[in-house]
Write a protein that binds this DNA or RNA. Sequence first.
DNA 1: CACCATACGGAGCTATGACTCCGCTTGCAA
DNA 2: TTGCAAGCGGAGTCATAGCTCCGTATGGTG
Lengths: 192, 192
Amino acid sequence: MSTAPLSVVPVAGKPLRADARRNRERILKAARAVFADHGMHSQIDDVARRAKVGVGTVYRHFPTKEALVDALVRERFEEIAGYAREALERADAWEGFCELIWRAAERNAADLAFCETLASTDQSRVVEEVGLARSTNELVRRAIAQGRMRADVTEDDVPMLMCGAGSVMRTNPASDAWRRYLTLMLDGLRAS
Amino acid sequence: MSTAPLSVVPVAGKPLRADARRNRERILKAARAVFADHGMHSQIDDVARRAKVGVGTVYRHFPTKEALVDALVRERFEEIAGYAREALERADAWEGFCELIWRAAERNAADLAFCETLASTDQSRVVEEVGLARSTNELVRRAIAQGRMRADVTEDDVPMLMCGAGSVMRTNPASDAWRRYLTLMLDGLRAS
DNA sequence: CACCATACGGAGCTATGACTCCGCTTGCAA
DNA sequence: TTGCAAGCGGAGTCATAGCTCCGTATGGTG
């Protein structure tokens, strides 16, 4: 007995009915808002309600809560990877690096779930897949070569930096503590 | 109908039967181990099993899971407050400060639940009550006066620092990333 | 238009884990 | 030794939240 696929995303990347495509967008939009506000404690029912869609529909598009979160996280990382590519175009790599960090942090500051995810689970997989790893490594390499960043900085330091920032944002939401944090941390990274 | 007290800790701080005192210690000991390993996801049943005690007994001593965690956290903060007092005895306040941070971090590195708590909920209350706030403030004040710490450091920076460390420890358990983190951060705090 | 695969809604089902209840046991004071 | 308040054990209750099921609706194709 060949059961029909539970998921709306077909075996091969096929057409996807118009209403399904529309609903998928509604769900993602609602999820962005709900998860930003309530973090990982957000409930799928809330997302569904907000998207004006039944729970079943949410689960047809994203088979588990985890899958939904992954989609949101990936979206965000892709955006940040874009910042990284822009930063690479600057002649001064250190300036580019700082800009990247600040832009990314600013983007995440209002998103509770993303901060929680960042500060609690390893994201190296996505960071890799999205091309963010490559860009930041290159940025770090250049900044060191230009003598603006301390020479012992490694690729692992950047995720660590952001993970710390996420945690500070989470502990003091609605505060500027994280700006303070980044200032100190970047001072720690600068060549002396 | 005056119901008997649910809790074993009496209205006034009274005698507490011998077996009750013994069990309380067993519970705390078990809880330290379980929470260190499994973090906030730890289950009371596991604590009870490990303590060789019924669940009911755990709840008689600590009315909620939260209360148990609070007790553990407070214990740890009291210990750290001790480190802080020792650090204050050093003539070089900056050295004392670094020592405090390193000792505290070393102590927390193997304790998942403590890191999670640190990185997710505001602990300023306990930090205050335990006298840790007072000590670190004094330490910071002196280090700045002695010209070894950058002058714009405030009392809020220290919890932030530790909170970030907790989060790094949690994301990369069984790794030395947090040492790296502290090195950078302390460099950020040092007077240039 | 008619047909049907694709998709939807939302009332449940279920697993999990915090907490309670109550009959039995035990420390300890008289 | 005896009485009983203080404690104990652990099966059971309850609330929550992730997820499923299936009858109904609808886009799109011939």
